[in-house]
Simulated assay, not measured.
Amino acid sequence: MDTPEANEQPATQTGPDTGPAVGTSPTSRSATPFSPQACANCDGAAGIDTNDPEAAASYIYALGRVEARFPRPSVEKEFAQATGRADTNGQTDREAFHAVLSQRENRYLVRQLCWVLTIQGLETYLLQPRDPVDYDSLVEATRPAPSPLDIDAVIGLRGPLAPPEMCNGLMIPIVAFDQIYSFDREALIGAIPRPEKTAAKEFKAAAEELFDRVMQLTDNAGATDDHRALNYLAMRYPAIYTTVADAYARNASLTGVEVRPSRLSGTRKIVNVICSFTSRNNDFTEKFFVRVDVTEEFPFLVNKMSPYYDR
């Protein structure tokens, strides 16, 4: 039976990782704590009363694709008129769509659209910024030339289900976001520091396999502590890719990625992310782990990657 006692020594917190996401050009901005439009203590986007003990915060750290939808026929017709006034000669439909939304005079249309985050092709969240300035992040996420490898990381607070009239009958949770990072997988992998002893081709293959594995985890909507920790590491912790590449170089397979509550949690919510590697030669399994604090909206590293010993 796996027990974490051997590794559960008092840890020195390394502090939050405040740098930009690995391989991204962040399109995020710091947001004010809550929008005052709805009430003094409510998030105007998600309708969450932050002083209500019954309304427990549900944080999101999700990886998917941002899409714009027309909520009503009138908005679609208005957008068509705005497109007719714009110079879109020679542009594709996606280029024209992005160009029209990018014009400052059309900001009113940006506010009228539904912004949907799809994960693995499924409509998962309706997005609303907690700071109106961050509508720019949504526009940039539409991309004039989208690729199947495009990824958007969304960090925010999950609210209630959207009412049917909000987005043409689409009833999924609303997320009031604080940050959106838009990037493509190639840029992310290319920005990860590569160990000198590892060939570029081998490291790229190892990193892509691990990132895809995190993305394809069952029900990874970025809402549970486990998935938030994994998504954070995939975005912000290059050492996890180095560990996988080193294991492949030793002819070992990545046979498991699991998340367990840490006994060091106390008043904080800390989880152990454990990677298991099994030798292809003798079937011997070794494990490495990293601790992540997921107490609040922004996860952060508690301990760096190190060997994990079962007792």
Rank of each mutant, 00 (worst) to 15 (best):
P53S: 01
R228E: 01
T124D: 03
G256L: 05
L230A: 09
D184A: 12
A55E: 02
T27W: 04
N303F: 02
T255E: 11
R236T: 09
E54I: 02
R250C: 08
L264Y: 03
N220C: 14
Q9R: 00
V292D: 01
I172V: 15
I151G: 04
A206L: 08
E140K: 14
T12F: 06
R185T: 15
M235A: 15
T278N: 06
P193Q: 04
N168P: 13
L138P: 14
I189M: 10
T14H: 06
R213I: 06
N89G: 13
R65K: 12
V139L: 04
P144Y: 00
P146Y: 00
V116W: 01
V273H: 10
V271Q: 10
A145C: 05
Q103I: 03
Q120K: 12
P238R: 01
K287F: 10
E196C: 04
Y248G: 02
D52Y: 06
A187W: 04
I192D: 01
V22K: 06
L126M: 12
P261G: 12
R291F: 00
T218P: 14
D150H: 11
A62P: 15
T12R: 08
A200W: 03
A56M: 00
R194N: 12
K201A: 15
F211Q: 00
L301M: 10
D93W: 02
F34M: 10
T243W: 03
A6E: 01
A38D: 06
A38W: 04
P10S: 00
A247R: 11
S74W: 01
S276R: 10
I180Y: 10
D17P: 07
Y248A: 08
Y61D: 00
N251Q: 09
E258F: 07
T295G: 06
Q112W: 03
N282W: 07
E123G: 10
N106F: 05
A11C: 10
T242S: 12
V294A: 00
G84T: 08
V22D: 05
Y135M: 08
P73E: 01
R107Y: 06
D178N: 15
P26W: 01
A153R: 15
R104A: 14
N7Q: 05
F183C: 09
F284G: 09
A6D: 01
P299H: 01
N89R: 12
L170E: 10
S58E: 03
I172Y: 08
F298L: 11
T278V: 02
V244T: 11
L233C: 12
R85K: 15
C39A: 14
F79Y: 15
Y308G: 12
L217K: 13
F79M: 11
Q179N: 13
A31E: 09
D225C: 02
